[in-house]
Amino acid sequence: MAVVYLLAESLVRNGHDVTVYTTTANGKEELDVKTGEEVLVDGVKVYYFKRYTKGNSHLSPGFWNKIFQTVNDFDVVHLHSWWSPAIVAAAAVCRMRGVKPILSPHGMFCDYILTTNNKVKKQILQTVVGKSLLKNTFLHVSTPMEWEESQLILKEKWEGAVISNLVELDNVKPPVKRDANSVFTVGFISRIDPKKGLDILIKALAKVSFNYKLQVAGTGEDDYVNKLKSLAVECGNADKIEWVGWKDNVQKMQFYSEIDLFALTSHNENFAVVVIESLSVGTPVFLGKNVGLSSYVADKELGWITNINDINQVTADLELAYHEADKRKFIHESAPDIISHDFNKNFLTKQYTDYYKTLMPS
């Protein structure tokens, strides 16, 4: 998880000692790394442990045993994500050892996640052990929206903090001059998945009055991608959509720089790094209201927010984004400096360390 790596690396760079325990999981494959011993990665002490199941379970006795043996050696323990038995069991080990960790759910408590993919299993897990373990954690989330969603999980108030995720912007160089596109170009870059609401964007764009091009960057399951392509044929805008494939870290910044509007009409996003990346090069954003950073974008006037439950409303808001050329120009000129200030890694890292210090034994 990139945000975890960035936080760990930045904490080390700011003079702190950081140890990470993780498994060899790499999607469906396994990382080719030494297991059970310390590996130094950019100053971070990393221990990888073999997992014995795949999917989302990642069962790893070595991982849990290491936590059991050493968890009391640290000033602060920070768990990331939820629902995976690997992390739920890690939370149980922390409780057994008398440690109250911080938990960053990374969007795992939103309605969309709770009601899709193994809904019954999640309900059983949460009822049997989940809530009792969560009571023994401090909550950390990256946006106010995620805070509100997470607070609904427990009956009593869940103590914690809202601190933004770190985003890698050190090498970002906004273009001095943006070349005008001959056709208004909307861009999407992310995993192509039902959660991302790309079908909503395709339907809404099919109804706009202006000429446009939609560039879709990313990869997904072939069946779902083909389903979206068939939808575009039905909507009559297949000829306006370019499927440009996966982009690496350099290519994606160029991608943001060459589009007129970045669109993310997701059903839910706890944060969405892509929003910050787009704004960092001055490209305005068009977001569904269920994207965690939508309130930030609205407060800073860096884009347009829409209600994805109403396709006609999405279309109307796309018309606004197209016709409000002066606002797009303002965002292009002002957004890079705003993002550089608000998402400075050292500034955010200090927020994390200040929060950690409040939880350390006096």
Rank of each mutant, 00 (worst) to 15 (best):
M1R: 04
L6A: 13
A8Y: 00
N14K: 10
T24E: 12
A25H: 13
A25S: 14
N26E: 12
V33T: 01
K34V: 15
T35A: 07
E37W: 01
V39Q: 12
V41Q: 11
D42S: 09
F49S: 05
G55D: 14
H58I: 04
L59W: 05
S60N: 09
W64T: 11
K66Q: 08
Q69N: 15
V71E: 08
N72V: 03
V76K: 03
V77I: 09
L79V: 10
W82K: 04
A86Q: 11
A91E: 09
A92C: 13
R95V: 11
V99Y: 02
K100L: 13
P101T: 10
I102M: 04
S104M: 09
P105A: 10
D111W: 12
Y112S: 03
V129R: 09
V129Y: 14
G130A: 00
L133T: 05
N136C: 11
F138E: 00
E146Q: 07
E148Y: 08
I153C: 04
E159L: 13
G160F: 14
A161P: 05
I163P: 01
N165H: 03
V172M: 08
V172N: 10
P175E: 03
V176F: 15
K177W: 14
R178F: 08
N181K: 07
S182K: 15
T185C: 03
T185L: 02
V186P: 04
V186E: 03
G187Q: 05
R191H: 03
R191P: 01
I192M: 04
D193Q: 12
L198K: 01
L198C: 09
I200C: 09
I200H: 09
K207G: 12
S209E: 08
L214V: 10
V216P: 00
G218A: 11
G220L: 02
E221V: 12
Y224E: 01
L231W: 07
A232K: 01
N237D: 15
A238V: 12
K240C: 07
G245I: 02
D248Y: 08
V250R: 13
M253D: 00
Q254D: 15
Y256L: 06
F262Q: 00
N268G: 08
A272K: 02
G282T: 02
V285H: 00
V285N: 02
L287G: 01
L287W: 03
L287Q: 01
V291Y: 02
V291Q: 06
V291C: 07
Y296L: 10
D299H: 08
I305A: 03
N307M: 09
N307S: 10
I308N: 05
N309R: 08
I311F: 05
E319N: 06
Y322T: 06
K327Y: 09
K329G: 11
P336E: 05
P336I: 00
F343V: 10
N346C: 12
F347W: 14
Y352L: 06
Y352I: 07
T353K: 07
D354G: 08
D354F: 07
Y356P: 02
T358G: 11
L359H: 03
M360K: 14
M360T: 15
P361G: 15
